[in-house]
């Protein structure tokens, strides 16, 4: 297991290298000038040129790339052109909202998705199955941003139950943090809960047809014991995979949710950084997101071992 983990962690390095190089080239390929974005519409060409030199943008591309690598090896992601501060600091300041939003949305997705999928799978063809799967179909079809805007309109503007947007740190004001988080977490998590529910249902269906389930039933065990004690754990392996993928999707989906609900997280940072051509920040956010993907996948692989002892890595 340990050797496997070390191998997996080492394999991350080439992946990240490819990711950062690709991002570096892509962002430099799109036209647009960071200096013009920082200086504003009234800047003179001379001012823009001076700022380009100051930012090192006048250097050839390969030179900029080499400099970027060498800094990266020292753990330095560079300095944001626009925000005028180290990228690591900018990332750190915005990591908390995105992390909280992702976790909250994941909880929503799991709490809605897993039970409804299992129930639907355990009683296929029942009214419950139909209602839940219709809900799941809706969940997959309805775009997240549309749901968000409707939530804002009904729960914030009309009913005034919850704030229309914004953010409070859970470490500073937990109650306010929860109030701010409800609408974004539900609108982001709902789509994913639908996916989880459908996978959980089909896994449950499959497991329930296995021989050992028939044996369990033949022993005279009750339906509840069969489902909870024998079927549930076995049905969970693919569901965990999907939850892993969901986490990754949620980090990406957080971009739109963060904009609509005005949450100062990494998603909003990368959008504004792209518009401002703030190259170091774009590279930093992509790097962190890619690293998170890789780590989540690793965690999922490790979790398999605990759910299904038959799985061995060597």
């Amino acid at each position: 297991m340990a050797a496997y983990l070390i191998r997996r962690v080492l394999a991350v390095i080439p992946v990240m290298l490819v990711v950062v190089t690709l991002v570096f080239l892509l962002i430099h390929l799109i036209p647009g000038d960071p200096a013009a974005a920082i200086l504003g519409p009234d800047a003179t060409p001379a001012q823009i040129e001076a700022t380009r030199i100051q930012l090192g943008l006048d250097r050839p591309l390969h030179e900029q790339l080499l400099k970027f690598y060498s800094r990266l090896l020292q753990g330095d992601l560079g300095r944001s052109y626009f925000l005028d501060r180290p990228v690591t600091q900018a990332l750190w300041e915005r990591a908390e909202p995105t992390a909280l939003l992702t976790i909250a949305a994941l909880l929503v997705a799991i709490v809605i998705g897993v039970p409804s999928g299992l129930v639907a799978g355990a009683y296929p063809g029942s009214v419950w199955d139909r209602v839940l799967m219709f809900g799941a179909l809706l969940g997959v079809c309805v775009p997240g941003f549309w749901l968000s805007l409707n939530f804002i309109y009904f729960f914030a503007v009309q009913l005034r139950w919850l704030p229309a947007g914004g953010y409070a740190s859970i470490f500073v004001d937990p109650w306010a943090a929860v109030r701010y988080m409800v609408l974004p977490a539900v609108s982001l998590g709902f789509n994913q809960s639908a996916l989880i529910a459908r996978i959980a249902r089909s896994c449950m269906l499959e497991v329930l047809q296995q021989d050992y389930i028939r044996t369990a039933r033949a022993k005279g065990l009750s339906q509840g014991v069969v489902i909870v004690g024998h079927a549930f754990r076995n049905a969970m392996v693919p569901v965990v995979t999907v939850i892993g993928i969901t986490t990754a999707i949620l980090i990406g989906g957080a971009v739109v949710t963060e904009i609509v609900f005005n949450i100062p997280g990494l998603g909003r940072l990368i959008i504004s950084a792209i518009l401002r051509r703030d190259y170091p920040v774009v590279q930093g956010v992509v790097l962190v997101t890619a690293a998170t993907y890789v780590v989540v996948n690793l965690i999922v692989d490790v979790v398999y071992v605990f759910i299904d002892p038959r799985i061995r890595y060597g």
């Binding site: 805007l149 804002i152 309109y153 914030a156 503007v157 005034r160 704030p163 229309a164 947007g165 914004g166 904009i259 609509v260 609900f261 005005n262 100062p264 909003r268 959008i271 504004s272």
Partner: peptide, 18 residues
């Protein structure tokens, strides 16, 4: 001063009293 980059969100937050 709270940055709210989306104009529709800005209007909604004003209406909701945020």
């Amino acid at each position: 001063w709270i940055p709210v980059p989306d104009a529709a969100s800005r209007a909604a937050q004003l209406e909701s009293g945020d």
